[in-house]
């Protein structure tokens, strides 16, 4: 056993030496890499590592962190009911709006691709506008205002379905569904744009070759030619929709208030906000962030695995 171990160490040392020599030879390449590598480490790797470190401590910004071990995670998972609610809400939003938004934006892109050029440009602007306009989701608070003058309330009262205005964003029953609709509407844009670009980039001769090889209908064309050609865009769209779905916070915060009634619209990020910026329990907030980070990485891996099977 010991012999084997020694051998392994010698081998590793040798490998490291070779790598170092290679690196010395390729100094120039590393020099070119340096600006990006330094920035990436400073602004991405370092914060992530620091946040994972703080998640094991009690840290309130003013005092130096005190090491707690796994205590933050234990109380987060076993004691914090609101966190479980936040996870439930986030997953519900992610599961409903993520895939649905993804599929819808692909379908719309595919349909629009068939249209004449000027219709296509107009449609692209209509779909992409909500994403570039930033905070325009606030318009929904006018539609769903709890006042009798809110459009939805006024309409429902006029046709006689309700007799008193419904407090859409105050009543826990309605909050989450409305937020989901808004998020769905918002999320169409980015994926849609990349899909349109992807569809445009497919070589026409491939379709002709496909017809020669016996492609019978549009579905086969979609599955065997269009989709495999669009893998990079599909990947981009999927990653974007997952990250946005898990990172939902500003929409619910702006529409349902912060904190929302009985935490009914709480997502993981709002929970993080609460602990980080209201209570200043940074250690705890970092633990939440770390869990969110792990969840995102796992779903991304799962989606990558699924996408690899496209067109086979």
């Amino acid at each position: 056993m010991k012999e084997f171990f020694d051998k392994y160490v010698i081998l590793r040392k040798h490998n490291a030496k070779v790598a170092w020599k290679k690196a010395k030879k390729a100094k120039m390449c590393y020099a070119f890499l340096a600006p990006y590598a330094i920035l990436f480490t400073m602004f991405y790797v370092f914060p992530v590592v620091a946040s994972i470190y703080f998640s094991f401590t009690y840290y309130n910004i003013l005092e130096s962190p005190r090491f707690l071990g796994l205590n933050n995670y234990i109380s987060l998972i076993l004691e914090d009911d609101i966190f479980l609610m936040a996870i439930k809400n986030t997953l519900m939003i992610a599961i409903i709006t993520g895939p649905l938004g993804y599929i819808m934006s692909f379908l719309f892109a595919w349909l629009i691709n068939e249209l004449p050029r000027w219709v296509r440009s107009v449609a692209v602007i209509i779909f992409y506008a909500p994403s570039i306009a930033g905070n325009c989701y606030v318009i929904f608070s006018v539609f769903f205002r709890g006042d009798a003058y809110g459009y939805v309330n006024a309409f429902l009262m006029n046709i006689g379905i309700i007799d008193t205005p419904i407090l859409w964003f105050i009543n826990p029953t309605y909050m989450l569904p409305i937020c989901m609709v808004v998020i769905l509407w918002m999320s169409l844009g980015t994926g849609f744009l990349s899909f349109v670009a992807g569809l445009q980039g497919i070589d026409k001769s491939q379709f002709e070759a496909g017809y020669m090889d016996g492609i019978k209908n549009r579905w086969q064309e979609l599955w065997f030619i269009t989709l495999p050609n669009m893998k990079p865009m599909l990947m981009f769209g999927a990653v974007m929709s997952i990250t946005t779905a898990f990172g939902v916070c500003d929409v619910t915060m702006a529409l349902c208030g912060y904190p929302s009634t009985d935490y009914a619209a709480r997502t993981i990020v709002t929970h993080l906000f609460d602990y980080g910026f209201t209570r200043f329990e940074m250690g705890y907030a970092c633990a939440i962030a770390t869990i969110l980070f792990l969840m995102m990485i796992l779903t991304n891996k799962a989606v990558q695995y699924l996408l690899r099977r496209v067109g086979t």
Binding site: L167, N171, P172, T278
Partner: peptide, 17 residues
């Protein structure tokens, strides 16, 4: 104290809803 206002408003909204 940040919890007080938050839960009073939760309580009021619960009774209203």
């Amino acid at each position: 104290g940040y919890y007080t206002g938050r839960h009073i408003s939760n309580a009021i909204r619960k009774v209203l809803n």
